[in-house]
Design a binder for these strands. Structure first.
Lengths: 202, 202
DNA sequence: AAATTAATAAAACGAACGTTCAATTAATTC
DNA sequence: GAATTAATTGAACGTTCGTTTTATTAATTT
């Protein structure tokens, strides 16, 4: 056999990406075999190589997509200039809420992007870290502005930004949809904690 | 050749543990080859199996040691009963400081224990998570007592405990000894942020 | 309907993997 | 100093890995 009836490159690539995210999130990148991935997609191993030249490029593609989507998500969620919410406290609230919701909606993707950086080559790692730094820069900007306006109490902007990112990303480590708290409640809780953490009066 | 001059089981095992922590922290557990580990220790691959029956048991031993040391560390750092520091705010301060210093002193071990849980079998994973939950229970106890005494403002004790743990463990992700902040400054900073996070007046 | 392109299958490559086994030597015990 | 135990080597086992090559068929274009 060769090309199968109804086969479509776009659909196959999307299926590979989704299956890979699930397998890597569950087993880890190194532990996932290309044969296993092919089996889950319903295709022969060789077919994967039409879409991704190597296993590492597949990982890189998944991570880049995740980071780019995160940046886009914040760009769209960010309060409009001149609005009341555009002041530091409002921007921080929007940042935390967007971050929590984005990550809860993409658990697999988040696990992959956070846990598998070691499997990237030096150059590819650098590109992903650049995107990450770009995103974190948005938070640092918010904190800096709040400090300037005197509405936040912060000892060290960079350290605080890292602490907040770690704290709010950590939600995917413990949160399970079937648990007692809803997504809304969790987001509200993290928002409150973040505001207290930066010394903002709510 | 066979037994080598000056060979000593205890020293060899310690060397294996240390080399494994370094390799797993850098490459990941699945990516580390037993041959590679043996090479770093200066021994043939077969010798490793005298000390650890399988690769997974080696990982489990490393993680258990890490968690047990963490619990012991807190037991010894914990303020004495009846002392001024034994009140919730003092215990929380001691908890954060001990946690930060413990993890900064054991970067490799921390990376392994946080990133490689997926490679454990179900039963072994459960045992490690039990130890982890025992440690986190200490923090939940502190938060609960502070809430009862009215010195903390906390919406959800469990969620707050997870958030604090994630935040303070995250220090090893970005902290580099050669950077501008000293270990003391970092510990003090995390202490301040934690106190604000739980609404304590300092 | 012929020609071309896209998508896949089938089979195989060499390399690397975790692990085992038997033999051998150093250190310790009697 | 003989017997026993501890520590390790060297070689090998079968399996699995990422990847490549070639052939084949479906879909599209001309």
């Amino acid at each position: 056999m060769a090309r199968t009836t109804g086969s479509d490159g776009e659909k196959t690539e999307a299926a590979i990406r989704e299956a890979a995210l699930d397998l890597i999130a569950r087993l880890g990148f190194e532990a996932m075999a290309m044969r296993q991935l092919a089996g889950k997609v319903g295709v022969q191993p060789a077919a994967l190589y039409r879409y991704f030249p190597t296993k590492e490029e597949l990982l890189y593609a998944l991570m880049r997509e995740h980071m780019e989507n995160l940046i886009i998500s914040w760009r769209e969620a960010r309060p409009a200039e001149g609005s009341v919410e555009e002041k530091p406290a409002g921007r921080l609230a929007a940042f935390v809420e967007n971050h929590i919701r984005f990550h809860l909606a993409r658990r697999n993707s988040t696990h992959v992007s956070n846990l598998e950086l070691r499997s990237l080559s030096e150059e590819r790692l650098k590109r992903i870290l650049d995107l990450r730094s770009q995103y974190e820069g948005e938070l640092r900007g918010i904190l800096t502005d709040g400090l300037r306006d005197g509405v936040f109490r912060i000892d060290d902007v960079s350290l605080t930004a890292m602490a907040i990112i770690q704290m709010i990303t950590g939600v995917i480590v413990w949160f399970r949809p079937e648990l007692r708290l809803s997504e809304d409640e969790v987001a509200a809780n993290y928002h409150t904690m973040t505001m207290r953490l930066v010394g903002a009066v709510m």
